[in-house]
Amino acid sequence: MCGRYASSASNADLLEEFDVALDRTDAPVRSILAAPQDPPAGTADHNIAPSKNVRVVLERPPRPEEGVDGDDEASEEPVRQLRLLTWGLVPSWSKDPSVGSRMFNARAETVLEKPAFRAAGLRRRALVPADGWYEWQRSPTVTVRGKPRRQPFFIHRGDDVPLAFAGLYEFWKDPAGDPADPRTWLASVSIVTTAAEPGLDRVHDRQPLVLEPEDWGRWLDPRVDDRDEIAAMLAFARPGRFEARPVGRAVGSSRVNGPDLRIPAPVEELEGVVDPTTGEIIG
């Protein structure tokens, strides 16, 4: 699974890295959070949890009032956009948005079969920019109150290539909402996960599906609707791109934030931790 991640790049950097034509992060968006999002949506966040509004790259025709690069005319061609979407996919047929709390991940192996994700997998695919993600490893040797001790890790690319999770997005309309209010619509996203590669499987058995830049265009293009081609992208794997390091336990609270969350945990704080590279037990 992927239940926490970090994304600290500026919007300007994301526009450049992902060759985005239309920045819509300033558009009004619906939030399902009980309190104002902190840090604010669209800014650096080092501890992103489900239900937050997150930055997402997608391609779809812009609405007439949006235009592109100062042009007031909207095209029927899909345009690459940066938007804020709620993390936790809510299918259009849902009775209410609460279902999104259980659908922040979608398994690559079943995306094209599950009713909740099938339509999005065929025509509403997205990229979720990130610095890396957090995962919790269950200790094979140390228990706390009868359960395996859980050690958080931060996992990131070992090179300078921008990281992007494969995602799926949907739109849900509030039947009680005002048709003139853009917040009547909830746009939501799920992160696609796949089997963890060797090494990372010592931390957790799942990991986000991370596509390479040369595949971003095909993944985002809604005109690519061939099931076999999409299935091939969902099956993508390239082991060896990531590094994993144990970090402090403060990341377990979604209220804690900041770049210090990624600082490697001191060796003396590790108990029964399995080294992802060697398989050796630390502490």
Score class of each variant (00 low, 15 high):
Ile32Gly: 13
Trp133Gln: 05
Ala244Val: 01
Ala74Phe: 03
Asn47Pro: 09
Pro162Val: 05
Asp201Asn: 15
Val128Thr: 02
Lys114Pro: 01
Arg138Leu: 07
Gln37Phe: 05
Asp159Ala: 11
Val20Ala: 09
Ile191Arg: 12
Leu89Tyr: 06
Leu163Asn: 04
Ala130Phe: 02
Phe165Gly: 07
Phe18Arg: 05
Ser10Glu: 12
Phe236Asn: 01
Glu269Asp: 15
Val247Ser: 03
Glu229Ile: 05
Glu170Phe: 04
Thr278Lys: 07
Arg55Leu: 10
Thr184Cys: 13
Gly258Trp: 06
Ser253Lys: 14
Gly279Pro: 02
Asp131Asn: 12
Leu22Met: 09
Ile263Cys: 03
Ala120Arg: 09
Asn105Phe: 07
Phe236Trp: 14
Asn47Lys: 13
Thr25Asn: 07
Asp45Gly: 09
Ile32Pro: 00
Leu209Gln: 09
Gly199Phe: 03
Ser92Cys: 04
Leu22Asp: 06
Phe165Pro: 02
Leu89Glu: 08
Ala21Asp: 13
Pro64Ser: 14
Ile48Cys: 10
Ser139Thr: 04
Ser10Thr: 15
Arg145Asp: 15
Ser51Arg: 13
Pro264Asp: 08
Phe117Lys: 10
Ala196Thr: 11
Leu82Cys: 10
Gly121Lys: 13
Val274Cys: 06
Ala116Tyr: 05
Ala250His: 11
Asp45Val: 05
Glu268His: 13
Arg24Gly: 14
Asp228Met: 04
Pro140Gln: 14
Arg125Cys: 10
Pro182Val: 14
Asp181Asn: 15
Ala195Asn: 11
Asp19Asn: 13
Tyr169Asn: 06
Gly146Trp: 06
Ile230Ser: 10
Leu22Trp: 06
Leu89Gly: 08
Gly199Ala: 07
Trp133Leu: 06
Pro246Gln: 11
Phe104Thr: 09
Leu22Arg: 15
Arg30Val: 10
Ser254His: 07
Ser188Lys: 10
Ala34Val: 11
Glu109Arg: 04
Gly70Trp: 01
Pro239Asn: 07
Val274Ala: 09
Ser51Glu: 14
